[in-house]
Amino acid sequence: MTRVIVVTSGKGGVGKTTSSASFASGLALRGFKTAVIDFDVGLRNLDLIMGCERRVVYDFVNVISGDANLHQALIKDRHCENLFVLPASQTRDKDALTEEGVEKILNDLKHMGFDYIVCDSPAGIEHGAIMALTFADEAIVVTNPEVSSIRDSDRILGILQSKSRRARDGQEPVKEHLLITRYSAKRVDEGEMLSYKDVQELLRVPLIGVIPESESVLQASNAGTPVIHTKEEDAAAAYQDVVARFLGEERELRFVNFEKPGIFKRLFGG
């Protein structure tokens, strides 16, 4: 049974697209046929982060309006087998993304044998974000340990539980997962940043992972390679853990404890 997962947040710039790219890649690396769709209307981002910007010919809206079929629009990822990208439209017309159109595409993807469909939501609570969450079976709510992000995540959780198809049809509710990104164990230790436990207590959603703040994320997006592919980087390992937990495996939380460096590291830099 195909599962549709929305990666959303409310707040912009917290790591939705970065997380969508790595999460979808992680699933594909495990052998699952995965599609990742950019639901923004007008601003295309996912293709850049995935490194397939030069291969975009047709986009999401082209398929909805019948200008192209899914096979023509889906871009096969160059980093892993089983992963396909459906880029966003650059149109300014927000009505171009219709609910019926989105539903049809998701059904077509299901018939094409996809195991997972990851919907990369735009920021905000407007049309694109609503379309991204409407057909979700599960939701990964990306949150920074920071006040506006937490409140916006809370807002989007409320909207998920009222505006999704599952909610409207009275089915089992969308399964919620909390993904905390840009975490700095050092700043938490210093009392300058909310801890993952604080965020969990405020949002009351099961934690699927904590991604530490990392330079490797910027390097990855510069290179057009989802960060999960980077070797020996904390952020990559953290995303691997997220995928594992999503698939039901037990993984201990890493990168959440700050160890004060020894005297030599502090004198000479680490």
């Binding site: 409140r151 809370d154 807002r155 959780l157 409320g158 909207i159 539980q161 009222s162 405020l202 009351r204």
Partner: peptide, 21 residues
């Protein structure tokens, strides 16, 4: 959750799980 509003007309209301800011 934030932004939601519930009105229990003519009755009590029980909320399991808290009321967000």
């Amino acid at each position: 959750r934030s932004g939601q509003q519930i009105y229990a007309r003519g009755s009590d209301v029980v909320i399991l799980g808290g009321v967000s800011n």
